[in-house]
Design a binder for these strands. Sequence first.
DNA 1: CTTCTTTTTGCAAATGATTTGCAACTGCAT
DNA 2: ATGCAGTTGCAAATCATTTGCAAAAAGAAG
Lengths: 158, 158
Amino acid sequence: MRIFATGVVIGHVGAMTDRAAPKRDYEGELKRAGIRLTRPRKVIVGILQATDDHPDALEIFRRAAAIDPSISLSTVYRTMKVLEGLGAIHRHAFEGGPSRFEGAGGEHHDHLIDLDTGDVIEFQSDKIEDLQNEIARRLGYDVVHHRLELYGRKRRKA
Amino acid sequence: MRIFATGVVIGHVGAMTDRAAPKRDYEGELKRAGIRLTRPRKVIVGILQATDDHPDALEIFRRAAAIDPSISLSTVYRTMKVLEGLGAIHRHAFEGGPSRFEGAGGEHHDHLIDLDTGDVIEFQSDKIEDLQNEIARRLGYDVVHHRLELYGRKRRKA
DNA sequence: CTTCTTTTTGCAAATGATTTGCAACTGCAT
DNA sequence: ATGCAGTTGCAAATCATTTGCAAAAAGAAG
């Protein structure tokens, strides 16, 4: 099992590996896809690159507006949709909240959401992935994608 | 691994077990909780008892309206919230759609959603549950609840 | 069965997240 | 510089769900 930690600092946890954020080249991807590199889009992808957490559209909008107040929330939503279409970012709809985004940088992983703080911790388990595929296969299906989210609280270190 | 099939008929799949829908006594639960047994609520829980799939609020409303046209959609939503609060039903927010409900009858299980038909197949894997708990523990967390959904397509039987 | 109090209901309007129509604007290939 | 398809901001629209409110009904008490 590989464990990533983003945004939150978690102590020493076994196989923990602080992910070296793979800094996506969003501008290049947009360009390559023949999509115009506009001012708003530059600002937004700049924010995504500088981010290590999982902000929602409104949060991205706030950060963008701080740089260029003329940017609109609709444009943030539109840009996220474009990037998602390119596979450059992933959208996560965690329980009871707006969608949150993250760069589609590193390897695949799932999420543990801290119910008290909203912090998101990433982890990955090949064993679980294998079991998922096996289950689907037994049911006559191929897994196109999945969603695995653990909602929990920090253990009281009694 | 235990595999349930509800709503959809799936062939012979290893350890498959057709779940004997545990017919909840919703009326008794409401009564016991000191919640009034009104006409709309009787109709709605009647629908839930007769159901083996995962209908959304609008679908429940349609079925209810067919029995008593005076029932409103708001009441369906309100009733689902009450039942959820009692732990009598579970709410599932699958990707890109409204919440779908199911009686909290049998044992815990996760879901495989057929991307082409929207059908939901239930399955359960102790092995996956164990792995989830182990991962959370390593990260210093206790799992309060989780969400595991496989989105897939029927395998072409080439 | 009538009365009384409290919970529920239906309806319409409000919410929250996200999308869309449209006219004005702007990358960027020529 | 020029031209136009791709983009933007804004306001209004959508979707699922919730809520305010006055009228209606449940169930305890007499």
